[in-house]
Every structure is written in structure tokens, then in C-alpha cells.
Amino acid sequence: MPTPLYVLEDVARPCDDVRQKEFTEKVKDIGIVLYDGFSLLAAGMLAEALHIANELQSESSANPFKYRVNLISARGGTVSCSSSMSVLTEQPSAREIDRFDTLFVAGGSGVARASADSDLIELLRRLCAKSVTITAIGNGHMLLSAAGVRQCDRHSMMHDIYAGMSTPTVPEHDPDQALMSSLALLKKDLGSELAVRVADCVGSGAAGSLAGDFQDRYATTLAEKVCSSARWLVQNCAKPISVVDAARMASMSERNFVRLFKREIGVTPSRYLLRARLDLTCKLLVSSELPVDKIARSTGLSNGERLSKLFRKEFSMSPTEFRTNSRRNE
């Protein structure tokens, strides 16, 4: 019986032309370096996470972005994993090496034998010479050591993922490391919110636990960003700012910012900004002799007419009546 051929989703075939990157959508080529005896579970976890990210991105035509996973080996053709299943790989030419943005080196039971493969070691050196970001999964670091490659990129990309998480150390199992490495890449490229959505789609077990850690960590980060933006709205309410400006300061889309702000603060950011402006207006009415129209302009409320309408709606009195009543009660 012939050895089964296992094909991962969203994997570019060896015959793919580099010119395929010239799509209307942005394409980012990801390479996974394989060899006989690699861990299929880890490689599959990487490919699955990026496949899910592609699907989530396709839901919004406003931000087209696609990862293209390339399975790479020293000689191309079929490569057998540690469980004896085979996958189809490509041997990138010197011209094609330039297209890879990020590289993952799989771990597995065959890593010691692969470390002695001069063709594979030379391929890694050529890939590294192109300054791609390289991350080893599991004992894949042995291959990088054999090639004389330092993992500076891996440390910097993974730092934000593990910092502050309930999991105190790097996950021990290859699939778990693959998951967290893919989430780190997604967070860097597309933001923590999409990375959390991908984590939410991952199955149960140890991987699900790690995904939960990631979600908890970045749910906290998003809440902190929203609270920070609320303070920014108060501090700048007298200026001609808008919700769009606040969303930009928080590095979020306006839609997501409004949703998260309302969830964390209890009101929409536009309502929060209005309250801040009215609060500042009340203070100026009591503490100064400035005319209502000037106060309105200096607190971001346009003019006296608009301010008067807002006051009657919010306080059932005019700004002048508010000033008089407040001073009388002092």
C-alpha cells in the first residue's frame, strides 16, 4: 500500500509562481521548514491557525490580507512526518527565497538526523541571509544551531505573548508552541483582537487552555486601552476631537472601539465625550464671567445655541439659569 499523502489547507504548491503575490489582496508568504521525521501536529497547528485567520479576514473586504503557507524542504517532493504520513513540499529557488516573510522550523523525532543534512543546513543559512523572521518549534532550534542562526527574532516576537500570562513558561509540547507562535505572528500583523478570535476557534485540550490564557491577557490589554482612551477624551474634550480620533489613538477601528468602550465604560464614547464637555462647561459657568457663546466654543460645543439646547435637554434649564442657581447655592 502506498504511503498516504497528507495535504494541509492553504498550502502553496511547488509550481506556484512568485508573481501570484500580485493580487488585489495583500499576500504574506509563510514558510514551514520540514524534513523526514518532523512533527505533523505542530505543522498542522501552524497552518490551521493561519487558515482560520484567512477566513476571518475574508469576512471584511475593507482589509484584505491573506497568509500563504509554503511547506519547504531541502530537496522538495514528499517528506515523511514522525507518524509516517507524507506531505508535499517545495525546494525554493534562489529567486523564490526572497518572497518569504516569516519562517518556522518544525521540531520532531528526526531533527538530529536532519541537523546532519548539509543541504538542509545550507537552505536555512540562505533563508536567514535574507533577514526573514525565524522561529523554531520544539527541538527545531537544533537545526538553527547547526546552521549557526541565532533566534533573536523569535524572542522579540514571543515576548508580548508570554508576558503576564498564567502559563509561567514556554509550552513544552510542539503543537502548543506552534499555536502560540502563530498567535504572536497574528497579533503583530493584524492586532490582538483578531489573534484572540483565532484563539477562540482553536479546539479544546492543552491548546485550548493556552488560547484561553491568550484571550485573558489581551482582554485585559483591550480594557486598559479603553480606559486610557476615556481619560484621553476627558483631557482633550475642549479640543475639536471626535470618536474617530479616540479610536485612532487606541489603534482600533471605530466600530470595535465603540463596541468595546460601551462594554467597559457603560456608555458610548460619543456620550462620554459629551458628558466631559458638559462637565467642563458647568465648571466654567460657575467659576468665570465668560459669555455662554464663548464658553461653548472653548469646550467643543460649537456655539451658544447648541449649548442652550443641550442644557435644556440634560438639566431642564438654560446655561444662564444654571450659572445663577449654582452661585446662589454656594
Rank of each mutant, 00 (worst) to 15 (best):
M158H: 12
S182K: 03
L183S: 03
C227T: 15
M165D: 05
L194G: 06
C201P: 10
C227E: 15
L260K: 07
R248M: 11
A207D: 10
H173F: 09
G205V: 02
I241Y: 02
A163K: 11
V170P: 13
D245S: 05
A246C: 04
M157P: 10
R217E: 04
G164H: 01
V202W: 12
R259I: 09
R150S: 14
C227Y: 15
A211E: 01
R248F: 09
E193V: 12
D213C: 04
V243Q: 07
V170F: 10
G191C: 00
S229V: 08
L210C: 09
D189G: 06
K239C: 11
L233D: 08
N236V: 13
A246V: 06
S166G: 09
H159W: 13
R150W: 15
D176C: 05
I161T: 08
D216P: 06
S204P: 11
A163H: 14
R248L: 10
V198Q: 04
L190V: 06
E254P: 02
P175I: 00
A178W: 00
Q177V: 07
C227R: 15
V243N: 06
T169L: 13
F214C: 08
V198K: 05
E224Y: 10
R255C: 06
S209Y: 06
L210T: 02
Y218I: 07
